[in-house]
Write a protein that binds this DNA or RNA. Structure first.
Lengths: 240, 240
DNA sequence: TACGCAACCTGGGTA
DNA sequence: GTACCCAGGTTGCGT
């Protein structure tokens, strides 16, 4: 289950060096107190242009979707409503469903509002977490590419390309985790999310990652890519 | 109730000047005989590109829908089947329902066939009438923009823009009523249409037009716009 | 397979 | 600012 980094190296552990300078510091403190490190990283996804564009949907890579958000029985029909909370304590509800046409899992309703409020751009990263010891709360966060966190009113340091060149190299650069950014917090999931009872056989076989995958697929947007030995949270490694 | 033009100026009263030259004349005659001027204009809508496009649905502006086609109780669930008849005596059935998602009233099933057969284009106008003295017959008609009526096999005088620039100005121009066109007749409504028992309170207040409305709203697409004193049917006024 | 159709969603405009 | 329309989209089912 664990993304084979039980203690995710990019980390939500508060790095003072990252957070002491902005107003979210107290939030991270509070989180430490009330349940320290109880969150487990599920997965994250570097956002594609489509994810932040007019399609108003986030494609969730199949292996993650089936592992963490299995759609069972009746929920397979209409999908479910998933609730997450972000760093500010705000609750975000997304409709989560499977699209037969594209054979993919997506977050639809609600997603565009998240993109807008967080000022997400292609290359930014969304993260999903849950309580380490079970429980049904879900957490969502994001990291702006370039790591130059600024949840300020001004345009969130969107990096050079506002009219973004979504070139291969650009995307790859994007997938480095240079500096963490802002968004994250604790959440409450108020809707069902049965872990068992999958929709079809294919899921079962996906439930445990078959390979010690290094998946890449660059433009096919997969980017699982666990760079094997990552001794310590030293997030400013970038690879091209 | 009356759109405050009991005798609609654009008129279904047979104007020989408009109709004497084509083969629908006898129909208009017949209508005169069997119940002269007994039809009451309900409303009309200039068609948007979506109304005639692949979406296969006609959005009925809310105030008209709730006034003339209230969806009550059980009919609110699945909508109703409305039957209209056109100028040729042909009966058209449409599924009429309310879409929660967009909070709008729509004609769905059957609509695309009407569009196709009448060769409707964006900018053309559909009209809805009913018997003036009550009764449950409904009538549907249309007017081609440019007024150059031609229910001929050839492309119905679609005016300049076939690959239509649906620009504001274009749309506005469209809403002038230059010359009436072809389609209209008497119909039989074979399905329930309870005039009472509205879906919500808002309807009641709409029942009588509050203002001596000259509604315009140009791009908001309303165009109720009865140009007050219209002494005689002189339909070739166009305003931009 | 392709299309009609039911239901859903969102942005932009408006009031 | 906020709430509401509605034009223009989407998915997915059925035929």
């Amino acid at each position: 289950m664990a993304q084979h980094h039980p203690q995710p190296w990019y980390s939500w552990e508060p790095h003072m060096s990252l957070h002491h300078h902005h107003h979210y510091q107290h939030l991270y403190r509070a989180e430490q107190e009330e349940g320290r490190y109880e969150r487990e990283h599920m997965f994250e996804k570097p956002l594609t242009p489509s994810d932040v564009g007019k399609l108003n949907r986030l494609v969730i890579p199949k292996q993650h979707a089936e592992k963490y958000f299995p759609l069972g029985g009746d929920s397979g029909e209409k999908g479910l409503l998933l609730s997450f909370e972000d760093e500010s304590g705000k609750t975000w509800q997304f409709r989560y469903s499977y699209w037969n046409s594209s054979q993919s899992y997506v977050l639809t309703k609600g997603w565009s509002r998240f993109v807008k409020e967080k000022r997400l751009d292609a290359g930014d990263v969304v993260l999903f977490e849950r309580p380490r010891l079970g429980g049904d709360r879900l957490y969502i966060g994001c990291r702006h590419r370039g790591g130059n966190d600024s949840p300020s009113p001004a345009q969130a340091t969107t990096v050079p390309a506002a009219a973004g060149p979504w070139s291969p190299g650009y995307y790859a650069a994007t997938c480095s985790y240079p500096t963490s950014s802002s968004c994250f917090s604790s959440a409450k999931q108020d809707c069902l999310l049965h872990a068992g009872d999958q929709r079809n056989g294919a899921i079962q076989s996906e439930t445990e990652a078959p390979t010690t995958s290094k998946r890449l697929r660059l433009f096919g947007v997969d980017l699982d890519y666990q760079p094997e030995p990552r001794p310590d949270p030293m997030p400013s490694i970038s690879w091209v």
